[in-house]
Amino acid sequence: MLTNTRSDRVKAVRALSRRSVRSRTGEFLAEGPQAVREAVAFRPAHVRDVYVTPEAAERHAAIVEAARAAELWVHEVSPEVLAAMCDTESPQGIAAVCRVVDVPLEEALAGLPADALVCVLTHVRDPGNAGTVIRGADAAGADAVIVSDASVDIYNSKVVRSTVGSLWHLPVSTGSTVPEILDALRARGITLLAADGAGTTLLHDADLGGPHAWVMGNEAWGLPQEVRDACDDVVRVPIHGHAESLNLAMAATVCLYASAEARRTRR
């Protein structure tokens, strides 16, 4: 069992809380049973090490057994060591060092189905919002999530936790500029739908009949005019009550599920 909180291994894992270290090593830390379970189940080749406390090993025996069956390194550690590795105040007893899973834009868009559904995040800065949108896209059956270069790092621990494992379920691409993303989607015949409160088309009137991508903007200022102009339509979610607006994650989920329902009725 690893018990030394000052060991080089512990320091190396803890250093993954810094973006510069994640970028240099190509690794990040996934914390909690949901994240580790999905990483082991869906992307075992991307899991380098699993760290678990004795209590958590007993509580989450199925995860540990699956990791060992996949021939992954499983290290038993003291609660103090796990706490030193993680940046959450109350770690849930298990974490995994994983290799990054994002793919180039061309790869993410390769082989999209005829009724493709894509979610694009532009200049999204809030980790919780980004992770929740990825989770919503996964739940709605989206085929890919594209995160622009000016957005939050998807390997930020808050993003990873907010995806609740969905980060390992569908193609995610990062690092491309917004114009590059829109051009690549348009070249594949995918309709670009800007989701913005300034839209004149209401969601229930939007044309969701073919392959399309929802383009989501920044939490504070939405989508700039040039991005809205570059899209085929600007769509807004109707507000029936007195709420001023929906936050990014809520609006994205509503739009994605509208697309999922339209897709379901066509199939």
Rank of each mutant, 00 (worst) to 15 (best):
L2K: 13
N4M: 09
N4R: 12
R9H: 15
E27K: 14
Q34N: 14
A35F: 04
D49M: 09
D49I: 13
P54Y: 01
A66S: 15
V74M: 12
H75T: 13
V77M: 05
V77W: 02
P79C: 03
E89W: 12
A96Q: 09
V97D: 00
D115V: 02
A116H: 03
R125A: 06
A130K: 02
A130L: 07
V133I: 11
I134L: 11
D138T: 12
G141F: 06
A142C: 12
A144S: 07
V145P: 03
I146S: 02
Y155S: 06
Y155E: 00
Y155L: 04
K158L: 08
V160I: 11
V160G: 06
V164Q: 08
G165S: 08
V178M: 08
E180P: 06
I181Y: 00
I181G: 06
R186H: 13
R188E: 04
R188Q: 09
R188D: 03
A198C: 14
L208P: 01
M216H: 12
R228E: 01
D229F: 13
R236S: 01
R236H: 05
H240A: 12
G241P: 03
H242Y: 13
A243N: 10
E244Q: 13
M250W: 11
M250G: 12
A251K: 01
A251S: 11
T253Q: 12
Y257T: 04
A258H: 12
S259N: 03
S259V: 00
T265Q: 13
